[in-house]
């Protein structure tokens, strides 16, 4: 008969028990961490803070941008950048309006199921946008000093503009991702049918489309575009889209109480409008929204969209309706 293997007792066994306990505690801690639902209130608080302190809402940031913008305007070789900086201001204000819209809605969400699902992208992207905002503020602060002290002002401002633009695109991308996640949270979380209806769904999607187009366009020129008037390498083309974006946000997301979202159930014309817009989506797919947005042109103060489908007739006027919708009505 084989002799059983001798196991050590005493200290060896105690070690085994101790290691077992440590492993058990570690497993319990991991399980608890995995099972704890995300504290959605933190995301709402982060959103609230972000909405109230978006880029350029701070007086110092705003003043620094004005100084920087003026310096560019005064500089013969660099004044071409001023309209781009005007657009920066418009984009920042519109992003702020969008965050305000979600902030004033999501605090009343009747279900936080979708909020939980999107908790991380909301919180992380808003926090990253905040860090990016600090960098933007720091760049602006440096540039206002450079404008006063540097002997080679033109080169310094020109390089500063490149740095600023690169960071601004990052800031916009973070906000775009946060806003996209906020849109997903909104849909299905609002028990209030005055807010959760066809109009709000379409408006939220189109807002994301606008941000996607802007990010795409600005990304293309970030870091590469012209440094001064000595080259023709300046491909910034987003001004019309920015104007259309501003108009769209002002029409549909600012003062929501007077817009289509809350009047949807009270106004059959508004319902008909979104029925047509929906029909467009089913006929031509939603990615065409972005093509239409990218074709924005401002002509005599009006926003027009050049984009036309080849060989597409529009008997029901759905195509025209979408163009009208995207242009806002202000």
């Amino acid at each position: 008969m084989a002799k059983g293997k001798d196991y050590s007792t005493g200290n060896g066994k105690r070690w085994l028990v101790a290691v077992g306990l440590v492993v058990l505690v570690a497993i319990i801690v991991v399980v608890i961490l995995l099972c704890i639902p995300p504290n959605t209130y933190n995301a709402i608080e982060t959103l609230n803070r972000s909405a109230q302190t978006t880029f350029l809402k701070n007086e110092q940031e705003d003043a620094d941008l004005r100084v920087f913008s003026q310096k560019l305007k005064d500089n013969q070789r660099l004044h071409v950048y001023t309209s781009e900086l005007d657009d920066v201001r418009i984009i920042a204000e519109s992003v702020s309006d969008i965050l305000d819209f979600y902030n004033s809605s999501l605090v009343f969400a009747s279900s936080n199921k979708n909020f939980k699902k999107n908790y991380k992208p909301i919180k992380n992207n808003l926090n990253s946008a905040k860090s990016s905002q600090k960098k933007l503020a720091s760049i602006l602060n440096d540039l206002t000093e450079v404008a006063v002290t540097s002997s080679s002002t033109t080169t310094a401002l020109s390089n500063g503009m490149i740095d600023f633009r690169r960071e601004f695109v990052k800031w916009l991308k973070y906000n775009r991702s946060a806003i996209s996640a906020l849109g997903k949270s909104y849909t299905g979380s609002m028990g209030n049918i005055l807010e959760n209806n066809e109009a709000s769904k379409i408006i939220i999607n189109a807002t994301n489309d606008y941000l996607d187009v802007l990010v795409l366009q600005l990304e293309k020129v970030a870091g590469e575009d012209k440094k001064d008037n000595s080259t023709d390498d300046y491909n910034y083309v987003s001004s019309s889209v920015v104007r259309a974006f501003e108009n769209f946000v002002d029409t549909y997301l600012t003062n929501v109480n007077s817009g289509d979202i809350t009047s949807y159930y009270f106004d059959s014309n508004v319902q008909a409008k979104y029925e047509k817009t929906n029909k467009f989506t089913s006929l031509y797919k939603e990615d065409n929204y972005q093509k239409i947005i990218a074709s924005a042109k401002v002509s005599e103060g009006k926003i027009l969209f050049d984009y036309a489908f080849d060989n597409v007739s529009d008997p029901d006027g759905v195509y025209a309706q979408v163009k009208e919708f995207l242009g806002g009505n202000l």
Binding site: G191, N192, L194
Partner: peptide, 17 residues
């Protein structure tokens, strides 16, 4: 019926506020 049910659903938010 629609406007009263709309009002019902928005009432919750107003009351919370």
């Amino acid at each position: 019926i629609t406007i009263f049910s709309s009002l019902d659903s928005t009432r919750g938010d107003a009351r919370k506020a």
